[in-house]
Design a binder for these strands. Structure first.
Lengths: 239, 239
DNA sequence: CCACAAAACTTGTATATACAACCAAAATCC
DNA sequence: GGATTTTGGTTGTATATACAAGTTTTGTGG
């Protein structure tokens, strides 16, 4: 089977929603109707409806029917984005300046976060990301050399570390913490802040199947950046 | 059927994982084995495995088997928590002080966020949350009176607005933005800050089936609070 | 011993069927 | 007209079966 039938049905339904043929809160065909239209069993049609529901694209009520969910929840998950994409999608120009790309002995905090031994060598990169020539984010990143041995050979003026890493080592998870801090002198300098102002610091630890890959500290001035737009957390509870 | 069979199987498997009987990356019973153990059809056993996989608790490989996923991804989603629970789960004492609970004409920003008309009446509450007598968060909340007409009659010294709202109007979505700000004088006062320091401001808009329910501004000092612990964003991409 | 084939087992997809639970609208009764 | 019951449609759960697709183990032939 080239492509699964339930996937074809999903495709079709997504298209209908995207082109506006099925507006928000409108009713979509029932399981039986879809089954007949696509000449499949009800269970197969059901699977398409089911998965779209899990993705938050439909909602269903027993005894009533299936409906198109509000679009605002759409872009939803998957917000581990590349800052370059993020800036460009706002229609602004992106550039970056590489300040450091070295190998250094691992500080204790980093070692425990990456599952390395203290003083073991670790890759370190320091980059400033600019939006329209204004510094938007200072990225300090530690990378596990056991998992990404070629990290230090990359040209990070053309590709962001995050994009490179996600190409080389498919992420399985990412762990975040967000803090509000007053930046030190060094950070202020690179972010072109005349005096310290409240900054967001996003700490991001990424994992692949084989363990922790990298630990990044992403610091952005509060006046220039905010996190989210819509960070949609899932509300699903374990059943 | 009191409780669905597939749910019982999930329960059993979750227990085994939680008590450590099935460690990380260990193999769990196959579809056929589960089907026999629980005297159900393979399709029912499959559903249990399937849903646990979608929740990130298992991972499966065709032709190989099903395995327990790494625990670090566990607590994961569902981080729309009650601040009272959050504090108490850290073993600290929680208390709250209600500063205001009124009805007022809707500012334009709030109106558009809640889908109300400008100057229409809206409920407003202002609360300080304390952890061990130290102010941890200032909560300013606007509530849609069309959806929650009884909001203003509640006793928020015994129940947090968020908990009350989630009981009355089941959330379907929540939208967040996170900013770093320097608080104004008023906020400093209520958070017992002698001088302004970097604060996290989480803006949370919640929705139920019928639209926007409430808009909350949650401000916490950066020195006392950080967001996440582990905000695990899902990496699932639409198929 | 090694290479290859076959078997056994796993998950993935699909079907046909049955009944339960739920809801809304239509029909009926009073 | 209004309350009640019936009916038909919808989603939810469960089963038995079949075959496809992938991996590992076993067996066989050389």
């Amino acid at each position: 089977m080239a492509v699964a039938k339930f996937a074809e049905i999903k495709e079709h339904m997504l298209t209908q929603i995207e082109i506006g043929a099925w507006p928000e809160h409108s009713r979509v065909p029932s399981e039986n109707e879809l089954a007949e239209q696509f000449s499949v069993s009800r269970m197969t049609a059901r699977r398409a409806l089911q998965e779209l529901t899990e993705q938050g694209i439909l909602y269903r009520t027993q005894g009533v029917g299936s409906f198109v969910a509000a679009l605002k929840s759409q872009s939803s998950l998957l917000e581990i984005r590349n800052i370059a994409d993020e800036i460009q999608s706002r229609g602004h120009s992106y550039s970056a300046q590489l300040l450091q790309l070295t190998e250094l002995p691992c500080p204790a905090v980093i070692a425990s976060a990456l599952g390395l031994k203290h003083q073991q060598q670790v890759f370190f990169s320091l980059i400033v990301h600019y939006e329209d020539q204004v510094p938007l984010q200072l990225e300090a990143r530690y990378v596990n050399p056991q998992q990404i041995p070629d990290y230090i050979q990359q040209d990070f003026s053309h590709i962001t570390p995050h994009l490179y890493l996600s190409q080389v080592a498919p992420l399985t998870e990412a762990e975040h913490t967000v803090e509000a801090i007053l930046p030190d002198h060094f950070t202020c300098q690179h972010l072109h802040l005349k005096k310290p102002e409240a900054c967001l610091r996003l700490t991001r630890r990424t994992f692949s199947r084989d363990g922790a890959v990298s630990l990044a500290y992403l610091t952005s001035p509060g006046s220039r950046y905010r996190l989210g737009g819509h960070l949609n957390f899932a509300l699903e509870k374990r059943s």
